Amino acid sequence: MNLNMIGVATTFSLTLLALTAPAAANARASTSATGGLPFEVKPVGTFKNPWAMAFLPNDHVLVTQKEGTLILFDPATGTRRTVSGTPAVSSKGQGALMDIVPAPDFAASKLLYFSYSEAGTGDSSRVVLATATLDQAGGTLKDTKTIFRGQDASTGGHYSGRIGFSTDGKYLFFTSGDRQLFDPAQDPKSTLGKVLRLNLDGTPAAGNPLAAKGFNAAVWSYGHRNLLGIAFDKQGRLWEMEMGPRHGDEINLIKPGLNYGWPKVSNGSHYDGRDIPDHAPGDGFEAPKVSWNPAISPGGLAYYDADLFPKWKNSLFITGLSGKSLDRIALDGENATKQDHWDMGERIRAVRTGPSGALWLLEDGASGRLLMLTPKR
C-alpha cells in the first residue's frame, strides 16, 4: 500500500485533539504562505479531522468531521456550534461523515444532502446518502431521511460519496466507490465503482443510459475506483476526480454510459508493484483527461468561475493529501491541462469556492485548518 491508501488511516488512528488557539493557527499560516504563492493564505478556524464543507446563503459554513460531527461555523466571527441530529457514523478506516451539499432550493427548503459511512452486519459497512432539514437557529438537523444505501462490503475504504446537482437542479449525481473490491466496478448489476444519476428523492433517474443493457438502473458511468470529487463546469459538463492505485490519480470528463476502465486499465500500478495496463487508444475504455504519476492522492475538487481570480476562471482546483498541494487545471471545452501546482505544506482535504470568489481549503488531520485564499495585494 502507498500513501494513497494508508495516509488517511494512519492520520485518523491518532488521538483526536482539536487545536483552537488563534496564535497556533497563525504560526502555522506562515509556513504555508511562503514559497511565492500567488495568493494570501488566511487561517480562520481549526477543526478535528475535517472532511468537507458547504457554504450557506448567510456565508456561514457547514464542516463535516470524520467521526460524525457537523459544525456550523461563522468565518467572520469564529463562532461555532455542533449541529445535533446527525446519524451514527462508522468512522473506521476511511469511513466518515463525508460530503454535504445544500439542495438547489435550499434558501426556501433548508434541505441538505449529505453522505456518510454506516455500519452493516458484522464487520461490513456501506455508504449512505441522506437528506435533512437544517434548523440553523436551533442548531439541529430535522426529518433526516436515507434516500440511497450502497452495497455492503467488509473493506474499510473507497466509499467515495460525493454529491453534485445537475445545472438545471433536476438530478442528483452521486459517486459510489469500488470499496477496494476491484471487479464490482465492471459489474453491471453493482452500484460500486460507478457514477449514479438519481432523482432528488434518491430513486434512479429515468433515461439513464445503461438500464436497457441490464445495468443497475441508477448507473450513469462505470469503471471507477475511488471517486472523491465531482463538479459541473459552466457549460454543464461533469468532471470527476479519483484516486488511482499506486499512482495514476486522474481527472475524467464524465459522459453517459462510458466505461472508464478500472480495474482493467489504469495509469497507475498495483500496490505490490504488479503492472496494470495503461490507457491506450482503441482499448475500449475512456481515458482520463489528466493523470498524475507520481501520485498526489487527491482529496477534493472544485470548479472555479468567479471574478476574484479572473485569470483562473473556468478552472478546476484539486487538493493533494500526500502531495500537500493545490493544483489548478485549465478547461477548454472537453480538454483539460495542468497549469499550476502549489506546495501548501500540509495535507489538503477539501476545496470550495466561497461566496465572494475566494478559494477555501480544509487541511486534513486532527487540527486541520480552514484557510481562505485571496489575491495578493
Rank of each mutant, 00 (worst) to 15 (best):
Leu210Thr: 01
Gly273Ala: 14
Ser90Lys: 14
Asp327Cys: 06
Leu19Glu: 15
Gly223Pro: 10
Phe73Asn: 05
Asn293Gln: 12
Ala9Tyr: 04
Asn49Ala: 06
Asn216Ser: 13
Ala21Gln: 08
Pro375Gln: 01
Lys289Glu: 03
Thr82Asp: 04
Arg81Tyr: 05
Thr167Trp: 03
His341Met: 03
Glu67Asp: 13
Pro102Leu: 12
Pro57Asp: 05
Thr11Ala: 14
Asn49Glu: 00
Val290His: 03
Phe39Leu: 06
Trp342Asp: 02
Phe148Ile: 03
Asp135Met: 08
Trp342Pro: 02
Tyr271Glu: 14
Ala287Glu: 11
Leu370Arg: 10
Leu37Tyr: 00
Pro310Tyr: 10
Arg28Cys: 00
Glu250Gly: 08
Asn58Met: 06
Ala217Gln: 13
Lys189Pro: 03
Tyr222Glu: 01
Gln151Thr: 09
Met53Pro: 02
Pro256Cys: 06
Ile100Ser: 03
Lys311Trp: 00
Arg246Gly: 07
Ala350Glu: 13
Gly68Ala: 07
Lys376Gly: 07
Phe73Val: 12
Arg179Phe: 03
Lys92Ile: 11
Ile163Leu: 01
Thr133Arg: 15
Thr46Ile: 03
Met1Gly: 09
Gly202Cys: 06
Gly95Tyr: 04
His341Glu: 09
Pro263Lys: 14
Ala76Thr: 12
Ser297Trp: 12
Leu111Thr: 15
Ala217Phe: 04
Trp342Leu: 06
Lys324Ile: 07
Thr337Leu: 01
His158Pro: 04
Asp152Val: 07
Asp168Ser: 04
Asp340Trp: 00
Val83Asp: 05
Met241Val: 15
Gly357Phe: 11
Ser109Arg: 13
Asp343Met: 12
Ala23His: 04
Ile163Gln: 00
Pro204Glu: 00
Ala218Gly: 04
Pro294Lys: 10
Leu192Glu: 12
His158Tyr: 03
Leu326Pro: 09
Lys110Phe: 02
Phe39Trp: 13
Arg237Cys: 05
Thr133Phe: 11
Phe174Ile: 01
Thr146Leu: 05
Trp220Gly: 03
Ala306Leu: 11
Thr77Ile: 13
Asp332Pro: 02
Ser91Leu: 11
Ser154Trp: 07
Phe114Ile: 09
Gly223Val: 13
Gln94Ile: 01
Ala108His: 09
Met98Leu: 15
Lys42Pro: 02
Ser13Ala: 14
Gly207Ser: 05
Ala33Met: 09
Arg162Asn: 07
Arg179Asn: 05
Gly300Asn: 09
Asp343Val: 10
Ile71His: 04
Pro43Met: 01
Ser325Ala: 15
Thr146Gly: 01
Gln339Glu: 11
Ala295Met: 12
Lys234Ala: 14
Pro277Ala: 14
Ile348Glu: 00
His341Asn: 14
Arg149Trp: 02
Pro188Cys: 11
Gly93His: 04
Ala211Glu: 08
Glu250Thr: 10
Leu62Val: 06
Val127Gly: 12
Ala130Glu: 03
Val265Pro: 08
Ile296Ala: 05
Ala52Thr: 04
Pro57Tyr: 04
Leu227Trp: 00
Ser356Arg: 14
Ser297Arg: 13
Gly45Ala: 02
Ile230Asn: 00
Thr144Pro: 00
Ser266Asn: 10
Gln65Glu: 15
Lys234Leu: 05
Thr140His: 06
Ala218Ser: 13
Ala212Gln: 15
Leu326Asp: 05
Ser221Ile: 10
Arg328Leu: 04
Val41Cys: 01
Ser124Met: 09
